[in-house]
Amino acid sequence: MNEQLKKITEEALSRIASCGTQAELNEVRVAYLGKKGEITQLMKGMKDLAPEERPAFGQMVNDLRTKVESAIDEAAAAIKRKDREKRFKEEEIDVTLPAKKMHIGHGHPCQRALDELERIFTGMGYEVVEGPEIEYQEYNFTKLNIPEGHPARDEQDTFYITDQILLRSQTSPVQARTMEKGKLPIRMISPGRVFRSDSIDATHSPSFHQVEGLAVDKHITMTDLKGTLTEFAKELFGPDTRTRFRPHHFNFTEPSAEMDVSCFKCHGKGCRFCKGEGWIEILGCGMVHPNVLEMCGIDSREYTGFAFGVGLERIALLKYEIDDMRLLYENDQRFLDQF
């Protein structure tokens, strides 16, 4: 009996070992463990044994079955592993073949710069406001303390439609429009297209974009202006950026200033990028002129404010090191693809 079991065991294990596929293995499984399989038959044959022999025999057959079962499972796992390996080998691809891209489009550098400006200022509590591009001279000039006949009207070579209506030469009229609404305090920025009669060259365009900023409240000071714009410069050009304020003149602010930032290429040491100065002029700003506040119906003894205007193209040119403004309006796909 024992001999027979031993033989079956050896036979079974050897057949299992010789199996190369799951199908062959299945045959073996059926041959031993199936309804008519050898081991099943042994179990069935137990009834012919003397009752006292049955437990021992049962135990032995069970052991045999367990052994064969686990040998089959192991073999099955090994074959699966082998099959997988074979498949992986066959299915190997060339990962260096070209990607299947969705060919997503690209943003314009000016829009990218604007998005960043808007992110910075909305984060500081500024609302984004828009105004008309074709504007009354009254808003573009008069309400900004530039009365008729004032030479400052010539400084911004303005395109006129009629005596009274023009292409706005700055985004500042949105200041007046916002203040006139009378809702205080004000913290707003106003991006938009402006126009000046400049011929197209590497640094000029007859149409470009500005972002105007305005804060009006009680107790707004020049130091607030400086702090706000320094914060903005650090956000835009990096935390090491320093700012320099120089006196300047704008009719609608007093005191007025221009802000330079330390050159972000040479960090202020002076290089070709900043023409050796270490500083790059970025924007004009100042405290809202009391005449402007009053013309817009705000009591200049109670309220003060600051305003600033940034050229968007200038920021884009600096930030992305674009050397010719014309590129911004050509819309060459190879240019746009870089943003």
């Binding site: 060919h103 489009g105 690209h106 314009h108 000016c110 829009q111 309006y329």
Partner: peptide, 10 residues
Amino acid sequence: GFSHAFTYAF
């Protein structure tokens, strides 16, 4: 797939 172009108003 479209890229942002900036054009003139006039």
